[in-house]
Simulated scan of single mutants.
Amino acid sequence: MLQRWRAVGLLAMALFAVNVLARLVIRFGFDGDDTAADRVSLVMFVVIGLILAAVAFRWGRDRPVARWAGDLAAAVGVALTLTVFVAPLLVGENPFGGGAGLFFAQIWLYLAATAAGVLVGYLILTALGLDHRSQQLKRYAQLKAAKPRRVVRR
């Protein structure tokens, strides 16, 4: 159980670190340039999506969907909370400085990027037939095919 939550915590910290790194790049590299800041933000969302796609692909191979989906949701929830409330403070900004529109836009964009990443990872896994359920069905079919039919006398 401890390793399960350790993996969730490490994933949340990795997602948070990507956001903090993007904020630092924007702050020190492109302080006044909004188009460059938008590009860095887009790259950040793509990296977050790719991380979650890889994790969904990896965890989906050996765990049921109900288990890893809950773990991913917990990690994304923690990372989102840290990203929205703590990350702006680390770079010297106010979390609510841009107004309610920017605050909620961060939340929706983050959730969209994470959902897209998880969906892409799981759809690729399912399309390849490597997900946990497909593997269970494959083992069941092999088991049933390996047993000879019982002859029933009447």
Rank of each mutant, 00 (worst) to 15 (best):
F96N: 01
W59L: 05
R23G: 03
Y140K: 15
L109Q: 09
F85N: 09
D31K: 13
G49F: 00
G99F: 00
F104M: 10
L128N: 07
T81W: 05
A73M: 14
E93H: 04
A7G: 11
V120P: 00
V91I: 11
F45Q: 04
Q136D: 14
R67D: 12
D34N: 12
L72G: 00
Q136T: 14
Q136Y: 11
I124M: 12
P95R: 00
G77H: 05
R139A: 14
A66V: 14
A66N: 12
G92W: 03
L111W: 06
P88L: 03
Y140S: 13
G92A: 08
A12E: 02
F96A: 06
Q142V: 12
R67M: 13
L125I: 07
V76W: 01
H132G: 04
Q3A: 10
A69D: 08
I26Q: 05
V91Q: 04
A112Y: 04
L111I: 11
L89N: 05
T35L: 13
F30T: 05
A113K: 01
K138G: 15
K144A: 07
M13Y: 12
L128W: 09
K144E: 10
N94A: 04
A79F: 01
T83Y: 03
A56F: 01
R61E: 15
L42N: 07
A112F: 09
R150D: 15
G29I: 02
D38H: 11
L21W: 05
L10R: 13
F103I: 05
A17H: 10
Y140W: 14
W5C: 07
A37K: 09
M44H: 02
G49K: 01
V65P: 02
D71F: 07
L137Y: 11
Q3F: 09
Q142P: 04
G129F: 10
Q3P: 02
G98H: 02
